[in-house]
Design a protein around this nucleic acid. Structure first.
Length: 216
DNA sequence: CACCAGGCAAGTA
DNA sequence: TACTTGCATGGT
């Protein structure tokens, strides 16, 4: 039986402090995919405004967004920043569904993890975090999502080195945690929550952080 | 006013 | 390979 380790302990502390986060904040897998692109280096408040605007224009479905010109998408997602770039990235993602899955979103959602991840990463504008967010929160694959917050929170608590790339961080977590979609879902959401609450970039340390209770 | 926010790709040397 | 730059809005 596996030993209790700091990464499991951190999860228990975060869960005890914050409770379940009920991620991803979206009404459908397609909305998750759109949000995953829009939230690149962008606050969720701004992303929500953009998504609301897409919804108001009836564009929050694969067929609707597919038949929409990038210029019109850009207008809707203005609030999320980088709007021309992200309109193009959304189009690239939609094109993947058309080319590799015959325009059938459900086929993409049901594809196996390795193939779906390879294909996502081949899309211009989809990097490791965006791909893994889609795989976990839209497809329900057991993928541990890493982001800036993951690195900041855990390096500050000396559980990760200062210099550590995406794949290395991901490996550390998956080798120290059971492979479980629901666990990974809740874990990443809790990391975002604790970072937003107690681990801001400008504030070096916070005594209120529940991870201060880590027993190392 | 400066800085930050759930990245990624392209350019340079 | 390793470092830099562009992309852009809205909140603090």
């Amino acid at each position: 039986m596996a030993r209790y380790n700091p990464f499991e302990e951190a999860y228990d502390l975060l869960m005890a402090h914050f409770g379940p986060q009920h991620w991803w904040p979206a009404d459908s897998p397609f909305e998750v995919m759109v949000g995953a692109v829009l939230t690149q280096n962008t606050s969720w408040d701004n992303v929500r405004k953009a998504i609301d605007e897409l919804r108001a224009n009836g564009l929050l479905s694969f067929p609707a967004l597919s038949s929409c010109a990038p210029e019109e998408i850009a207008l809707c997602i203005r609030a999320s920043g980088y709007y021309n770039l992200k309109a193009k990235r959304l189009k690239n993602l939609l094109e993947l569904i058309v080319v590799d899955y015959g325009g059938d979103l459900d086929r993409f959602l049901a594809d196996d993890l390795q193939q779906a991840r390879e294909r996502l990463l081949a899309v211009k504008g989809i990097g490791p975090e965006t791909a893994d967010s889609i795989l976990l929160y839209a497809c329900n694959h057991p993928v541990f999502v890493v982001d800036m917050y993951t690195h900041r929170v855990f390096s500050r608590h000396n559980l990760l080195p200062e210099e550590c790339d995406y794949h290395t961080i991901q490996e550390i977590f998956v080798t120290n945690l059971p492979c479980d979609t629901q666990l990974y879902n809740e874990y990443h959401a809790l990391v975002v929550r604790v970072a937003a609450t107690y681990c801001k970039k400008t504030k070096p340390l916070c005594g209120q952080c529940p991870l201060q209770g880590l027993n190392l």
